[in-house]
Design a binder for these strands. Structure first.
Lengths: 202, 202, 202, 202
DNA sequence: GATGAATGAGGATTCATTCAT
DNA sequence: TATGAATGAATCCTCATTCAT
């Protein structure tokens, strides 16, 4: 009888289950994860799972959303409370943020979206609107702000904020697929930022 | 003219099945694809599948390898027959190659490796050694050649050939997950190449 | 009064299933018995079978063992509580025991071991050690006891306790294969015992 | 490409297949033997099998019958050409015959009949009439002849010729199930004959 | 609310049998 | 005849979901 990992109150249950599911999905992917396995990790009975999440699919969506919600706050929090120059912001908070993404739950969610996303367009919409679109808008915002301030020149980058995401995405995928092969993801991301700044600086 | 129930085509079967499987996996992913569905697409009975591939898993591996094999040839073919300058090669054949990857079967294989790779380390090894490592080595090779020729300066890029892959990878993922949202992947890749060349040119 | 769809009876399930399986195996043999058929006999769903027995093979082993276990007790029970003379014991309790074996579940298990035993050496070991070896040892024990007591003479029988089993085995096989042809198995066994006692009496 | 084991003429084919099947059935039993496996052993294609035997079941019956037929001749041949005394015949040719049965194809057929017999009553009939009944009748015949000649006394044995078979049957079963445990089947059979002769001698 | 025994649809795999060549 | 590629019914087993307790 392994002690249940969590022994908290009812109101925490959904989050506990959601966290257990995230872990399990991280290890095996969505399809290969048994509902019972999640229950075990959450220290909860199989039946109880269905009191909180009507189906496995719904649990999946809840997992994605829970991660999304936490990230959004972090992202937005950072953006709004800054008074750095555009370059300093990019080299500072933004870079830090980008560097920790590959090792964060976001990486797991990305994997899940790649595997299961095509069958859950609504979830992809949700993720896109709440994370990707916001993130891209924020980046575009910084760049445009820099242009306004005369720090940056006008360039195609404004329309391709994905260039900021590219090394992060590669790092995430690398971590999932080629985990054993070393890759200095921090340096990868830094160098990309360097190149981008060089490119857009007036 | 009823289709003949029997059609002996031993030679072509494996490839026919493999192609049908690629299609099916592309649409639904590995786990959600029924063996019978692949059989139907290949115009073949369920039982025959097992004559050529002992298990669904083996079919999966065959699919990955078949795509890999075709790409490798293409990749190597391009590299060895060139006498362009480093920059011209990168802006020419390499760029073309990179641009068409996101729309090619490689994109599907990437998705499969992200979903199922963690459970098939041998397959990941295979893919890494035959595609990724070779591709990265080739890129590193061009860059170093450019340095030797005095076209390029020494830079960190030599150790981060993944910077060339990053926009391609992002384009692939984008195509899988956010297909409906427009992204000019060609321009994305081009811009990255521009930035990289700016960065390494002497 | 519709039968309830659910009936929790964890305690009894294994035995219920095991008994249903014994019946089914008796009628059709192991290979020709469908798991679903056993489930139906046990009044249970197919899925539940797998909750108690991981595979059909494991169910098979459980059936053999369950029969074995019941017999062993009976066998040993008889042996240890006797104070009859050797001959009286053989003509009394032992003979009775032998007579009822051909009509008992043991006969079914024998059939199963003949059909499937060669593929389950561990099970054969188990059966041999727990039933055959013990039975033979017991018989040898009686005979030697009789020798010690002066009732019996020394003879080759001590090394061939299988002579006691032979008519029982023939009766079992006869019952399985030639059931419709009359054979007075009781008289067969009795006569063998007569001959054996004549042979070993001093 | 392993050389086919047999390379004879068409008229031998059925027997070749039948022999290959006997071997295969001996190793794995009927249910677990694949038709293809028999074909391979016979050095013949799967399709050809069906030219000679319409179904696997028919092949099975052919195997049983082929063994039966050969044994019957042997049995009858022995019986008719003798001019020994009853006891001498029993101790001589009959005993020899009995001793070699457990190691002969008959043992395999017995196993097959135990496993599959209940589903093939016609086959059991055939076997009973052609082998068992004849064998038992022959034994009864010897015994009665002995009585007529004054060698033997009247006894219950006349009605229980199965007492002659019992040790042979046990030896067969032992060989199938407990093959690794030593049992001197020759001595077992001899002792039984001794006992029987003691019992019936005037 | 909790539990976990029970259900059954669904899917991978096998193999006797067929048939184009 | 002879082959073995091709078929598909049959079967084991899994697992999301339900429900008696």
């Amino acid at each position: 009888m392994p002690k249940p990992r969590y022994q908290r109150r009812k109101e925490d249950r959904p989050q506990e289950i959601t966290e257990a599911a995230l872990e399990a999905f991280a290890e095996k992917g969505y399809a290969a994860t048994r509902v019972e396995e999640v229950a075990k990790r959450a220290g909860v009975s199989k039946g109880l799972m269905y009191l909180y999440f009507k189906t496995k699919e719904e649990l999946f969506k809840a997992v994605v959303k829970s991660v999304v919600i936490r990230r959004i706050d972090q992202l937005i929090g950072n953006i709004e409370t800054t008074d750095l120059s555009s370059e300093d912001f990019i080299r500072g908070p933004l870079l830090s943020f980008m560097k920790q993404v590959p090792g964060s739950p976001v990486a797991i969610v990305i994997r899940l979206l790649i595997s299961e996303g095509p069958r859950h367009p609504d979830l992809v919409d949700y993720y896109y609107e709440n994370v990707v679109a916001k993130g891209l808008a924020a980046i575009t915002g910084f760049v445009e702000q820099g242009v306004k301030r005369g720090e940056f020149r006008k360039s195609v980058i404004t329309e391709l904020p994905q260039l900021f995401l590219a090394p992060v995405m590669l790092s995430i995928i690398w971590g999932i697929v080629f985990k054993t092969r070393q890759l200095d993801t921090d340096k990868l991301i830094e160098t990309q930022i360097d190149m981008l700044l060089t490119h857009i600086k007036a």
